[in-house]
Write a protein that binds this DNA or RNA. Structure first.
Lengths: 158, 158
DNA sequence: ATCATTACTTTGACGCTCGAAGCAACTGAG
DNA sequence: CTCAGTTGCTTCGAGCGTCAAAGTAATGAT
């Protein structure tokens, strides 16, 4: 087993961990992974249009509509007709939605952040350099990326 | 933006890249990401039972049955009753299935492998150490991990 | 023989995803 | 002002992935 394989295995462990994390998270919140992800996006930038969410998540508008429907039905978010442009619908989290976000276990990300911040300064630098290196080795061109871990569809967890 | 955020963003880029890769790959092969993943697993360990695939992929047997059905319908794999234990069904790739595997673009992994192997010795060591570090920061307990990149369901890519 | 276990398939239900088509509102050219 | 084009979102219809539960078949232990 050469080093290339070892590095691929480590990558796979990373993917796997985030995948499982998504399911865990969703289950704990009573939502699916993707629904939770929408809630996260809405929570980050509160007056948030459907199109913005779609672009952010890399899915179609139709998909967002369906996801938002479900979140509305569960009282997590609300639709509000925009005053400026009445074609737009702003999607805002309800109190319940915010509470869900705050109380989400966030086990994985928390664990990661805690461990990361416990590292020595030079170790942090090394990890950042390595991760960015790997990222650039993997992706051709780039897109927005926010400091929020999530697992995409992966997750069509049923 | 502190270093923790930077590291999270890099992680997200990695996840995103592998996610997109899965779709690309699948589309090129005329299969979905998950179907292709099954084919990969079958290709790796050829006499392969449904249960083995299910465990390897972290899904239920029922799901594997449904996925294998689709691969059979497309002539990618065959079911063969085991001689030893006639409850078991061995799933083996057909010639077409092997051809599909061989000719799969494998763009991302190829790109990664090529770049990784072009690195200096010490750089490889550094990356491996960093990736394993991150992996251990993310996953609590571990499971099998093979040197094959993929994106799980995540993705229920439709 | 019989009962429990194992391996797989079937069934029914749900979630995610999309493209296409539709509706409502805005915008710009004339 | 008006009409055509564009934009933002929703609805509809369809396919895929996923699972739990129930069913079938074969093995194994007693």
């Amino acid at each position: 087993m050469d080093r290339t394989d070892v590095s691929l295995i480590a990558l796979r462990r990373i993917l796997r961990a985030t995948e499982l994390y998504g399911r865990e998270l969703a289950q704990a919140a009573g939502l699916t992974a993707v629904q939770f992800r929408v809630l996260q996006v809405v929570g980050e930038k509160s007056p948030c249009t459907a199109t913005a969410i779609a672009q952010r998540m890399g899915v179609s508008q139709a998909t967002v509509t369906s996801l938002v429907d479900k979140l509305v039905r569960q009282g997590m978010v609300e639709r509000q007709r925009s005053e400026k442009d009445r074609r737009q619908t702003n999607i805002v989290p309800t109190d319940k939605g915010r509470a869900t976000l705050d109380s989400a276990p966030d086990a994985l990300q928390q664990r990661y952040v805690r461990k990361f911040e416990a590292l020595e300064d030079w170790e942090q630098s090394m990890l950042v350099a390595a991760l960015e290196r790997v990222a650039s080795m993997l992706d051709a061109d780039d897109l927005d990326a926010s400091p929020v871990l999530h697992t995409g569809d992966l997750a069509n967890a049923g």
